[in-house]
Design a protein around this nucleic acid. Sequence first.
DNA 1: AACGTTAATATGTATGTACATATTTTGTCA
DNA 2: TGACAAAATATGTACATACATATTAACGTT
Lengths: 233, 233
Amino acid sequence: MTSDSRLSWKDVRDRIHEQILTGRYGPGDRLPRDADIAEDLSCARSTVQRAMQDLSDSGLVERRRKGGTRVRAEPVTRATLDIPITRREVEQRGARYDYQLISRRTAPAPRGVLAAFGLSRSRPMLRVEALHLSDGRPYIFEDRWICPETSPEVRDLDFTGQSANEWLVLNKPYTRLDLRFYAISANPRQADLLDTEPGAALLVIERTTWVDEAPITTVKAITTPGYQLLTGT
Amino acid sequence: MTSDSRLSWKDVRDRIHEQILTGRYGPGDRLPRDADIAEDLSCARSTVQRAMQDLSDSGLVERRRKGGTRVRAEPVTRATLDIPITRREVEQRGARYDYQLISRRTAPAPRGVLAAFGLSRSRPMLRVEALHLSDGRPYIFEDRWICPETSPEVRDLDFTGQSANEWLVLNKPYTRLDLRFYAISANPRQADLLDTEPGAALLVIERTTWVDEAPITTVKAITTPGYQLLTGT
DNA sequence: AACGTTAATATGTATGTACATATTTTGTCA
DNA sequence: TGACAAAATATGTACATACATATTAACGTT
């Protein structure tokens, strides 16, 4: 990758990956130590280290100090998921984006919300319901709770122009994120809002964020029928 | 992290992360070059590089040669998803795992399967339908197509004892993976297999894998009602 | 002003060395 | 034999240096 003579860490990674692919090393097998591989390929140990780091990140291999490196015995399917701001998601599909605030009011957080945050005692939070539209048709309905103790600014925001989704993602970076996906049957209200039939199967993307243990927001993004969430490109 | 005097790359990363959190650098802003940060913190540039690499991987920051480092203007919610082998998933919940082969036969791959692989002309593939059970109750129904040209071994496997899920994950590492999630309404057959009502909302996890452009398998994992897919721990 | 070439520059990579850290292994003593 | 301490060891990190590479900025020519 770097030059034609020197070995790049990606070359080393691919080499080892291939040896795993071809069965040279099977699940649970121990690989040679970095230093030996480095000598074998006549490159620096740090180059092997970088390659191994990547293989470890991708879940193919497990490394432990003194224990060495071994191929994962119980492999997992690991993927990275990118969820953009909804506006951007719509626009990137070449559609026109619209946003509609449905409700915004403060109320004591219900049990489900407290559970998502891992809180025990109840407290008032800001609930924002909104609809994202693609080419004028409902796209995602979001039901969001925001903790005003962590984000006092929200008291002065009405979320009519800019969605809470966008404002939070732009202004409230998080240190911890929980994501969950599941399917629900549309209840009458959801069906009405999303312009579909009650009972329709809907994918829900639930997201909860914190800054250092302090809860920021939790949101249920209820998608329209047929919505698909993809990995990669 | 390393010692008490020297600065570890995680320290540097957290420091910069915090400066982004506190608004010292906002979306789109350009950060100082690595070398300057290194001098500021009196550490090596490679330490800053390592920290920046991590911030870049986590989607918080974008780096371009000569262009420098800047805070992502359109942030994304990035998460890593680990999908274990179904057997292990069940066992880790403390439940008993059972597996039931429903059908195994060769047939021309339908359009949807060819589309998933990105193939144009049809060809025969092995279809395997199976049920994973948790404590004797249906857990996931998998509808899988395997390309026998890429994995000739499957011709001699009956998948009665070991599931195709497990065999493939253990023996067929992939180089490319596509994942998609969506919701469906159970049709009568699915409802019957999963012991639920027709019309129930079900989460579907669709997975397609390749080795270097050669298709391995594509599978629809149709989960039981209430199933949730989580990130992190 | 428009365009293509050249220089400048910030990040990316490779290397060697020196320690740090987490485990395992070994050794010792009761 | 068993428990605990000490040595051995493989990975992890930090640093300094040298070069590679991609991209922007500068510059001159038409």
